[in-house]
Each structure stands twice: as C-alpha cells, then as structure tokens.
Amino acid sequence: MHPYRRPLLMLLGMLALSACATRPPASEPEALAEYEQTNDPLEPLNRGLYAVHNGIDTVVLRPAAEVYRFVLPQPVRTGVRNVLANLRSPVILLNDGLQGETQRFGNTVGRFLLNSTLGVGGIFDVATGFGLPAHTEDFGQTLATWGVGEGPFLFIPVLGPSNPRDLVGFGVGIASNPMTWVTANGDNTLENIGYGLTGLTVLDTREGLIETIDSVKETSLDPYATFRSAYRQRRQQEIRNGGANPAPANAWGTGLGTAGSPPSGTQPGRN
C-alpha cells in the first residue's frame, strides 16, 4: 500500500463519520425550509473537502494560473481558450442533440466548421462575428432537462462545487469526448498531447477565475456558503439556457468554471 494512502483513508473515514448535518426538527419550519433549500446534508464533509481544495488551490492551482497569465500574453491565452472550446464542440453538439435543441445544434455545427477553417483550427472565434455565439452544454445539464434531480451538494477538491448528477455528467463528458479516445489510444506523442490539453484546460479555467475567487475569499464572511449558493444558482440558469452570456471558460460542468465566473473571452450578448 502506498505510504500516504492509509492516513488519507482514515481521514476520509473520519470525515464521513462526522459528515451529516443535522436536519432541523419539523417544529422549526423556517430552519427546515432553509435546510432543504440549501440542499447540503453532507455539509461537514463538504466543508472538509473544501478546506482540502483550498489548500491545493493556494499552493498549486492559483500560483500555476498566475504563472500562466504572466508567461502568455492576453491574445495567446484567448487563442488557447478558443482552441479548447472548439475541441469541446463534439460534446456540446451531442448534448444539444440530446436536449432536442435544434437551433443550438445548428449553431454548434456552424461554429465548429467556421472556427476550424476560417478560425485557423479554432484559434480565432470568427463564428461569433457571423452571429453564432458560443454556448456550453454538458451531460449534467442534459440529465437535468431529462428530469434527473441534482442530488445533494458536493464539493470535490480541484473540480469544485458539484453534485452527483453533474459529477456523472462530468464523467460521461470525458468518456464521450473523441479527444479522450484519440489521445488515450495514440502513441506517446498523442498521449502527451492529451495530458497537455487537460493541463491547459485547468490553467485556462483557473486563470479566468483568479479575480472572481479572490474577491469572494476577500469579501465573503463564509466563502464556502457563497460558492455553494453561486454554483447552484448559476447552474440553474445554465440548465434553463437563460442569460445572454455564453461561458466558453466553463469546461467542466462542475465547479471550477461555474462558481460565478465572469464571462470572458467573448463579447457579452446584446441580442
């Protein structure tokens, strides 16, 4: 057994034992209503995981994102973001289809064709200029439109705020992405490209959230509660396909890209 695994398992076990928040009694209807509204029965466990995430973020993710921002000038970062978004097109397309969103389906096809050709392999988002703005879809949203409930709130280290439905969606999203199979079944070079893409996605997402997360941590009296509330509200809006702002930085369909991130990289919608 790996030397670090045993203490880690014990820690997880202890967290799980202390994991359940107490449900308020029926005699306190307002407290009960809030408990149900918050949808976080595993709050103690989640707060523990949030602390773990925060540690990783402070030591690794945020500094890496800072370096990424420092090393690459803005136009290059925008290009990277556009390429990554373009590579996600097949998954977005599949979900447009599964949700019966014919217009968005057409949009995604048009965007992929335009940006892959005129946009030089997706570096430039020319499609937005042609009236085809970006949007995101993922399997978590598709499951939601099919009527699958979100389940209890979860905070997953590195991925951020989530829930069982969006977590399953995240897994299916990876499995259904052609890039996953191309890079996993390829030779060494392709495999490395796969790791590179994953790394870039993490860097790009975190870089786009530097200010947002900093300001929440600075101004919120309880950042965990703020992230939880913001994630769930924003997720509801994404599921409704509401709002004019596409969020190309939202790669995961779970926390990182959804915790109240500002729309970046594209013009805000004026439609």
Binding site: L221, Y224, T226, S229, R234, Q237, G242, A247, G260
Partner: peptide
Amino acid sequence: AEGTSLRLTQRSEYSAVISRNGGQVSAL
C-alpha cells in the same frame, strides 16, 4: 450576474455565519 443573485448569495452567506455560531445574530 450570470444568473447569480447577489442578495440570494449573501443571504446564504450570512445565514451560514449565524447558523454555525449557534444561531447568534451577534456573531454575524
């Protein structure tokens, strides 16, 4: 912003502070 209401988010934040301090508004 982005479907996230500031007053809802802040209600969640303040309520968490009070709940985690034994329901004391003075803690907030």
